[in-house]
Design a protein around this nucleic acid. Structure first.
Lengths: 157, 157
DNA sequence: GAAAATAATGGAATAAATTGGAATAAGATG
DNA sequence: CATCTTATTCCAATTTATTCCATTATTTTC
């Protein structure tokens, strides 16, 4: 059974809450009893990962505390993950509340249309407009890559 | 459970006091019973760390005092951390009072809007304006990083 | 050195926002 | 077409934030 796949359309309620679809809820229940980490991506969307997945992501990026006093990069790395991540539990009604700052990061006003995108490790929340653009870019990139591969096959000695 | 994550909006009262959100208070209680070190960052914000975290940040620098006699840099480093760090305890109402000099360092007048930013090791207090700029820079940096990575994926032989 | 004034602190009350739940509407399925 | 599932809206209750006031400490002036 494939987890965290496919796409859903949904909308934020007046308080910025999001109702997840039954299959997404089920995937999060199976993964970690509905415990979720919300994380703002540089691309302008919010990812939802089961907590263990996020811990794994963080394990590599963890910088040691002794550098904090002298390194701006170290401070900004912690800032990026600290400020832009938060955990929550899916409620009994299958809802999550996006913090206002996260909503803004993803360009989602209360009442906005959103896309829930399965990304295998979890799901991502995109505004409808941004998702359309992102999907076009993703496709363009791998098309270009394919073209280069074919060209390389001709010119290779 | 993620500690010291997310962002909060709050404002200084007329006397320059700051009410922390319940989850931040809880994180500090768990970390060191509410004992906190305030420290002015070069970026123009004030960091709050549990005391053990601050000790860890300073541990290396404090381990060799032998340079003090001949190194201006060493003396100024101690000066910076000494003058710009102070400890305090979160009150029963969950408030902390920023010393006037620290408030000024962070560009916070009494009554100003502030942002409490989780940075995993603790939290940082930013003025609303400065945080907006910092966040934009953080996002821009990691976006640029991502773009370079994608470009590299196309030109790779 | 004492008294008054000013500033700082602790606490409580009121107002605002968030959350949980239920009810209704819409859609899908047999 | 009826029933069951899913989505959306609305309301009540709780939590959280802000403001205001009283008390304590500190400083200044006489």
């Amino acid at each position: 059974m494939l987890a965290f796949c496919g796409q859903d359309a949904c909308s934020l309620d007046a308080n910025g809450r999001l109702k997840l679809s039954p299959r997404v809820i089920e995937d999060f229940m199976n993964a970690d009893s509905g415990r979720v980490v919300m994380h703002c991506l540089p691309e302008g969307a919010v990812a939802l990962y089961p907590e263990p997945v996020y811990q794994e992501i963080r394990r590599q990026a963890m910088s040691d505390l002794s550098k904090l006093g002298e390194s701006l990069l170290a401070r900004r790395t912690l800032r990026r993950f600290g400020a832009l991540s938060e955990n929550c539990t899916i409620t009994r009604q299958g809802r999550i509340t996006l913090p206002a700052a996260f909503r803004e990061h993803a360009g989602l006003k209360p009442g906005a249309e959103a896309r829930i995108i399965g990304v295998e490790a979890g799901v991502e929340i995109w505004s409808r407009e941004r998702w359309d653009e992102e999907l076009a870019e993703v496709n363009a990139h791998w098309n270009e890559r394919g073209q280069q591969e074919m060209a390389g096959d001709l010119t290779r000695k």
